[in-house]
Every structure is written in C-alpha cells, then in structure tokens.
C-alpha cells in the first residue's frame, strides 16, 4: 500500500478546503442557519410535533443529510475533475498507485470535508433547537457511510463529466430533488399511501430515515433496511469505480 501517496492526495485536497474556507465551510453553515430560522423558528413554530418530536429538532437530521449529500458529490466531483481539466492528472496516473489508493485519497478527503461540515451544522443546530442523540455511534456510522458513498458518486461524476456544466448536472437535477423529496423536512408516513410507495424508490429516504433513527429512534423504514441500502450503494459505487480504472474510461484512453 502506497500510504505516502494516499496522504499526499488527501493533504492536497484538504489544503484546497483551507484555502477556500469561506466557500467550503461558511457557505453551507450559513444556508443551514437560514433553514433553521425559516423552517425551524418562523414556520416551524406553527407546525405541530411529528411523532412526538419538535418540528425544529425533527428537521435537523434531514438538513444535515441534505448538506452532506450535496457537499460530498460536489467536493469529490470537483476534486477529480479539476486535475483532468487542468491536465495535472498525468501525475496521479503515472504514479505507482493502485486505483484503491487514488480513490482513498480523493474520496477520503471529500468525505472528511462533508463529515466536518455535517458536525458543524449539528453544532449550529444545537443553538436553535434542543437536541438529543440517542445513538451517537450509529449517527457517526451513518454520517461516515453516507459521506463516503456520495463522495464516491461525486468521484464518478467528476470522471464522467467532460465540462463544468455536466459537473453540475447530476447534483442539480438528481441529487437535490431526491434529497428534498427524501424526507428532509417531513416523515414519508405523512404522505398519501401511493406517494409513500413511490418515495421508497428514492434511495435518499433510507439514508435520512436511518440517520433520523440515530437521533430520535423514529424512522420511516427499518434500520437494517437503511444500513443495507447504504452498503449496497457503497459497493455499487466502488464496483463502478473499479470498472472505470480497469478500462481507463475517460482517464487512460
């Protein structure tokens, strides 16, 4: 294992975050604070509790997930796309690294950023609503698995994209709608039965449900199903990445 190489990529990617601290950290935190002010305090105060949970507290896991999904995809896709765009990718491709090491460097850094942002949002939320995390280990597990899985998806998008427009296409047209419709601001049990069934086709439902369970022991789907789905997406993303490096798709052709 070429640990020095993994560390080099990881440190390089994290350094980019520190250089653009305002954009990387402050911006998602600010937008989340706005969500809390609008949905938590202004509108939330007029909405009744959901499953016995204060609405302001209920949306915390969903809001964290919303940001973590978007940040994971955006950080990882930009992280690999930019060297491709600038041409500096030659160095990574010619280095004595396996694809797993390359993925560990880029995806690890993107996931780390998302986890940090998720935790900052959690800390910020605690200033607005009373929060209790019933299962902190599961909360961290879901946060890490989701960050890694969606960073892997972002990494794939960054390799697939052949322009900055395409880089934005999937996050804007797919990830954001799925995150909004995945139960960030509501429980899918509140939907009419037909929409409940349709919602189950949305993978984000399982992530938010499992994550919310770790906070309140309340979930839309069973915990085991949530974990199974996250692991399934993780394995699928990893398999697709392995194929990309095996064939050289958009990298070595």
């Amino acid at each position: 294992m070429n640990f020095y190489a993994v560390a080099a990529i990881y440190k390089f990617e994290m350094a980019r975050t520190y250089r653009t601290l305002g954009q990387s950290i402050a911006s998602p935190v600010l937008s989340t604070v706005l969500y809390f002010v609008v949905f938590g305090s202004a509108i939330g105060s007029r909405i009744s509790d959901i499953d016995g949970i204060n609405y302001g507290a209920f949306i915390v896991p969903g809001l964290i997930m919303l940001t973590v999904l978007a940040q994971s995809v955006s950080n990882a896709s930009f992280g690999i796309y930019f060297p491709r765009f600038a041409g500096t990718i030659y160095e990574v491709l010619s280095a004595p690294m396996s694809f797993i090491e390359i993925v560990m460097g880029y995806v690890g850094a993107a996931a780390s950023k998302s986890i940090i942002i998720g935790l900052i949002i959690l800390a910020t939320a605690s200033f607005f609503v009373p929060l209790e995390i019933r299962h902190p280990v599961w909360m961290i597990t879901f946060l890490v698995l989701t960050s890694v899985t969606f960073s892997l998806l972002g990494f794939i998008i960054g390799i697939w994209a052949d322009g900055f427009e395409k880089l934005q296409l999937i996050p804007l047209l797919v990830i954001t709608p799925l995150a909004f419709l995945g139960g960030s601001f509501y429980s899918i049990n509140m939907l009419p039965p037909i929409w409940q069934k349709i919602s189950l086709a949305n993978p984000v439902v399982y992530l938010i449900s499992g994550f919310r369970w770790s906070f309140f022991e309340q979930s839309d789907v069973r915990l085991s199903v949530s974990i199974g789905m996250v692991l399934f997406f993780l394995v699928a993303g990893f398999a697709l990445t392995a194929w990309i490096f095996k064939t050289g798709y958009r990298l070595r052709n």
Partner: peptide, 14 residues
C-alpha cells in the same frame, strides 16, 4: 515547495 513535495509523496517517498 508544496507542489514538489506533493509529487514526491505520490511516488511513495517519505
């Protein structure tokens, strides 16, 4: 300095 150090790391050198 950073970019040269980065290259050294990529090639597995401390």
């Amino acid at each position: 300095w950073n970019t040269v150090s980065f290259s050294r790391g990529l090639f597995g050198k401390p």
